[in-house]
Write a protein that binds this DNA or RNA. Structure first.
Length: 577
RNA sequence: CGGGGCGUAGCGCAGUCCGGCUAGCGCGUCUGCUUUGGGAGCAGAAGGUCGGCGGUUCGAAUCCGCCCGCCCCGACCA
């Protein structure tokens, strides 16, 4: 494809003008705030509340002396971040553990968010010229091992199918030993090998290139330890696999997709990311170069939110895929692969949520506004219901994903808590007083200025009584504003925990005393030095940021923090998920 | 795989050390009445192979043995 063709493909992307703001100076108060967020590994002692019935919520039994409001089932984020995360996932009914070790059940509300993500991403893939297809779940072992490094990289986490039949022996059902497969099948941990096997028959000429294919699928990586969404044995993702006639074009594709991911993360998830190149140790097995977007979670740890790899000719060579180029010579095509997974749902939770539950950006919220009618008797109920129904219809007509919560068995307060836990951005209360005054009560799920740890103070401020017409017509604009606010808030939180560090002493203080975060440091060390740093501080090089990713103040040359050797640019160091 | 924890009603737990009445409690569920602007109240009701198998005992949720499963921490990883 010509350069013009590339430009055409890139047009579908929104231009990304937004950059990280300059990082403000850190104050003593900031440091004190961050200290509260250091992750505690102690076992949580909070009352757990199941809150998982399909028909409503159970509330926790409260000990004597506890306040009435204390359903207090979500562990405070500042006390036990890991437990808080699990609690939010459970209470927002995003997912739960299943009967299968390491595998989760994604519940309807969690799946709805994933579907929104899929929609946004799929649109972007299509806009950049990609098409969807589907390849098999099973990969013949022979195929997987064709590419040595790739196979070695995934060897320790493969599920393998060896038999194709069960039989009944004395009333017990067992695997039939006579039904052994001639060749074991690996449940795909990723699909490079099986896809390139197929590409062999699809690619003969440069005219067949580029081949731009994506698949939405489940994959299986048999992890030792799992966490809901962040790491599960089976997960859902998309994997793009492209083939190109030139190295330049393939490298361009890998960058283009990184831009797509960045655009999605920041504009849709409202999650700021740093784009960069992975160090050798963190590279995808079989790749020439791995790129990633790294996001900071509220506890200061980095989470790899998406990856895009330039694979060179590695997989083409392994599968013996060749094409005839314009010069009439046989050549292996150049490849990329790239993916994001349901891990993004975990990233979403850990970027925005608070002690009251999920905070969801409007663009991903399955329900953007919930309407709760309030009344005391049948006469009021009739009047309020009419108004609530009207508000509902009006919002729907404007394209707002609205829900009218007219359940009669539940009191308004209980509904408020439920929708807050589930991350609904806006709530509109309709009561008799509002009818009299020609107003509506609008409640936001979060405020821009409420940084992590300060949300509690904001509750009263989140509620406002506005003239009826203002609410009826203004919700779409408010949702847009909230989307922007959320990104701004996340950027501010990230800035608070981001700094340039010049010495090992400062580095140690940052990660061991001040709660840690993103450390931008000059680096010129070897792989062994990297390992030594990891051992000593439990941190790693998250990425070598792309040129435009380094904030102005952090640019320029310096000396390696570890070896003292001259260094041309800083790398991003952090603890990681 | 190593360390820790757990398994008793739909959910959360007590009871287990020190064996003993009919296995309890809270929430949820069902029925009725009253409630409804931040998690409603009262009355009544239903709901259990105490993870499984075996052993000790007059008697086992409780003691002993074996097994199974899940969660958390670590090594590995998106």
């Amino acid at each position: 494809m010509s350069q013009a063709g590339f430009a055409g493909r890139a047009e579908g992307l929104a231009q990304d003008g937004a950059r990280l703001p300059p990082f403000g100076l850190r104050t003593t108060n900031d440091v004190a705030l961050l200290r509260q967020f250091r992750v505690s590994r102690q076992q949580s002692t909070y009352n757990r509340c199941p809150a998982v019935s399909n028909r409503g919520y159970t509330s926790c039994h409260m000990g004597a002396g506890e306040e009435k409001s204390a359903q207090a089932a979500i562990a405070p984020r500042a006390k036990d971040y890991a437990q808080w995360y699990l609690d939010v996932v459970r209470h927002a009914q995003l997912a739960e553990h299943s009967a299968v070790r390491g595998c989760m059940v994604i519940r309807p509300h969690g799946y709805a968010i994933w579907e929104k993500m899929q929609g946004e991403l799929d649109d972007r893939f299509k806009a950049t010229g990609h098409v969807n297809a589907y390849f098999p779940l099973f990969i013949p072992l022979k195929l997987l091992v064709q590419e040595e490094k790739h196979a070695a990289g995934f060897a320790k986490e493969c599920a393998v199918v060896t038999h194709h039949r069960l039989k009944s022996v004395g009333g017990e059902v067992v695997v039939d030993p006579e039904a052994k497969l001639e060749e074991p099948l690996v449940v795909r941990p990723t699909s490079e090998t099986i896809i390139w096997q197929q590409y062999k028959s699809w690619i003969q000429s440069y005219r067949d290139l580029p081949l731009l294919i994506n698949q939405w699928a489940n994959v299986c990586r048999w992890e030792m330890r799992t966490r809901l969404f962040l790491r599960t044995a089976e997960f859902l993702w998309q994997e793009g696999h492209t083939a190109h006639a030139t190295e330049e074009e393939a490298r361009h594709e890998a960058r283009l997709i990184l831009d797509v991911y960045t655009d999605f993360a920041e504009r849709v998830m409202a999650m700021p990311v740093v784009r960069g190149v992975k160090s050798e140790g963190e590279r995808f097995p079989g790749a020439v170069e791995s790129l990633s977007i790294e996001a900071m979670m509220q506890d200061g740890k980095a989470l790899q939110a998406g990856t895009s790899h330039y694979l060179g000719q590695t997989f083409a060579r392994a599968a013996d895929v060749k094409f005839l180029n314009r010069q009439g010579q046989l050549e292996h095509p150049y490849a990329t692969s790239w993916g994001v997974s349901t891990r993004l749902v975990g990233a979403l939770v850990m970027t925005h949520s608070d002690d009251e539950g999920l905070v969801c950006p409007p663009k991903l919220a399955p329900i953007q506004a919930v309407i709760v009618p309030i009344y005391k008797n049948d006469a009021e109920k009739a009047r309020v219901a009419a108004e609530a129904g009207l508000v509902f219809e009006r919002l729907k007509a404007q394209g707002v994903a609205a829900k009218l919560d007219d359940r009669e068995e539940m009191q308004p307060g209980a509904k408020f808590y439920e929708w807050e836990r589930k991350g609904v951005p806006l709530r509109i209360e309709v009561g008799p007083k509002d009818l009299e005054k020609g107003q509506l009560c609008l409640v936001r799920r979060f405020l821009k200025e409420a940084l992590p740890g300060k949300e509690a103070e904001s509750r009263a401020k989140r509620k406002s009584f506005l003239p009826r017409a203002q609410v009826l017509e203004g919700v779409p604009a408010i949702l847009v504003q909230m989307q922007d606010d959320l990104l701004a808030r996340a950027r501010a939180a990230e800035a608070l925990r981001t700094r340039a560090i010049e010495t090992l002493a400062d580095y140690e203080r940052f990660f061991k005393e001040e709660g840690g975060g993103f450390a931008w440091v000059h680096w010129a060390g070897s792989a062994a030095d990297e390992e030594a740093m990891a051992q000593r501080f439990e941190t790693s090089i998250r990425c070598i940021p792309l040129a435009d990713q380094t904030p102005e103040a952090f640019r320029g040359e310096g000396r390696c923090l570890f070896t003292g050797k001259p260094s041309r640019q800083r790398v991003l160091m952090a603890k990681a998920y």
